[in-house]
């Protein structure tokens, strides 16, 4: 049996909000260590890997491994009915045909209970090895989100160029072009505002602005985003959870 209680529904609300526009159907794999999801978008350009470790829950138990096949839009409809500050408990039997979601108001005696039908989803679970990257950038997630939004107004592609101590986001469109340069920066008082660049080799890669604009829906999850890049390899965009992560592996665009 699975029983996972979040102190606040807001964490799962943000996670589902970040994923729902990229992937429609997901298997939520529940083990004693927590809940993990791996799903690839329909165009097979973006792979999402989610890990909510048991430590992200107030209480967590999962006696046997359970797979919950969930339709993200339906899950989102139910999740939106709960308040962000509600306690949220996920409950499923060992061979479940539904996932129960219980929202409890902390101040009042209000309990809202929902049941979501499960689906059989045929999905491969890939073993993603640790990858080696030539460049790693840690930067404020809100700053990254603004750059992705701004650059998308110019072009459907966004070029990321990394040299010694700066990252250049470059966009070449039909009616004009634009770029934003971010330099290494340490804010000792507000560490979440810092920009850190670790570089083995210079990087020049291009990505679809549409996918980056899906990825930045994770911004409310973490104050910093980690961007890991290497030539001829999927880029990794990572948002840390209190215990776990939400990762996006994005294919680069190649020259014609």
């Amino acid at each position: 049996m699975l029983e996972g209680k979040f102190d606040e529904a807001s964490l799962l609300k943000k996670v589902i909000d970040a994923m729902k526009d990229s992937v429609k159907l997901c298997n939520f794999n529940c083990t004693e260590n927590g809940i993990s999801v791996q799903a690839i978008d329909d165009s097979r350009v973006l792979l999402i890997s989610l890990l909510i470790e048991a430590g992200s829950f107030e209480d967590y138990r999962c006696d046997r491994n359970i797979v919950l096949g969930l339709e993200m839009e339906s899950l989102n409809k139910i999740i939106k009915n709960g308040n962000a500050s509600d306690m949220l408990t996920l409950v499923a039997e060992d061979s479940p045909d539904a996932l129960n979601l219980i929202f409890e108001d902390k101040r009042r005696d209000r309990i809202a209970e929902y049941s979501l039908k499960l689906m059989d989803i045929d999905q491969d679970f890939l073993k993603i090895e640790d990858m080696k990257f030539d460049a790693v950038v840690n930067m404020p997630s809100a700053e990254f989100a603004k750059i992705c939004r701004d650059m998308k107004t110019l072009s459907e592609s966004l070029q990321i160029i990394i040299t010694k101590d700066s990252v250049k986001f470059n966009s070449e469109g039909d009616f004009g072009s634009g770029s934003v340069v971010i330099k290494s920066f340490t804010d000792l008082e507000k560490t979440e505002e810092s920009v850190r660049i670790t570089l083995e080799k210079p990087i020049n890669l291009t990505f679809g602005a549409k996918y980056l604009n899906d990825i930045i829906k994770s911004t409310p999850l973490a104050s910093q985003v980690t961007i890991k890049l290497c030539d001829k390899q999927p880029a990794l965009f990572e948002y840390q959870l209190p215990s776990g992560y939400l990762r996006f592996y994005l294919a680069p665009k190649f020259e014609d």
């Binding site: 690839i40 097979r44 973006l46 792979l47 890939l126 390899q233 592996y249 294919a251 665009k253 190649f254």
Partner: peptide, 14 residues
């Protein structure tokens, strides 16, 4: 441009 199924093939390469 995107190479079709590149990401899928990348993670299935072995």
């Amino acid at each position: 441009k995107y190479v079709q199924n590149w990401l899928w093939r990348y993670f299935h390469r072995d």
